[in-house]
Amino acid sequence: MNGAHDMGGMHGLGPVVPEADEPVFHECWEGHVLALTLAGFSWGRWTVDKWRHQHEKIPGTDYLRMTYYEKWATSLVELMVGAGLVTREEVGPAWPAVGTQGTAPWISAREVATEPGFRIGDKVRTRNINPTGHTRLPRYARGREGVVTRLHGAHVLPDATAHGLGDRRQPLYQVRFEAAELWGPDASRRDAVHLDLWEDYLDHA
């Protein structure tokens, strides 16, 4: 979905502020949220893709305001309520319902084999898709031409698993995009951005 999480290439989000001697957790509760989240995965009720999509469904203004582990905690509650592990009444007003429920994935109708349809060196063009559901094809890399630089084998398609549509394994490719292809003629002619992209995202260029 074209949410606030898909922020590659945005301006105006401020400077990068590194912290010297940063602790692993700034507050005790952050470690507990991490541990609860990892415990949650062990219940086998949701995939990592569904979990990531849950973050994306937090409204953009809240997404940008919340701290990292606040988003994790919020998503965990939403997933638990959705899976029937806890009720809204049990978690109480401290954890109000957050975000939209209904989003729709985009999955191509074409047959995709687990054997790679592209080879290293092939020119590919990413599809221009704008699903309201989960995807790992960021906005800044849609409709762009790149070159396959590595084959990663077959991986489950997050666009499907995030929506409970099963483990659709597809070839995953590392694709190199020249910076000027993504950002225009003012970008460095020497630089490049690589993304890992599923077969469903790609066409021959």
């Binding site: 290439g9 989000l13 400077p15 990068v16 502020v17 912290e19 950002w183 970008a187």
Partner: peptide
């Protein structure tokens, strides 16, 4: 686990469009 800046909107938004600018700040 990643540091806060790595997970932050400024780094996530700028690293792909202005990597040299981000690196200069480091």
């Amino acid at each position: 686990l990643p540091p806060v800046w790595y997970k932050s909107p400024p780094y996530r938004s700028r690293a792909v469009i202005d990597p040299r600018g981000v690196l200069a700040e480091f």
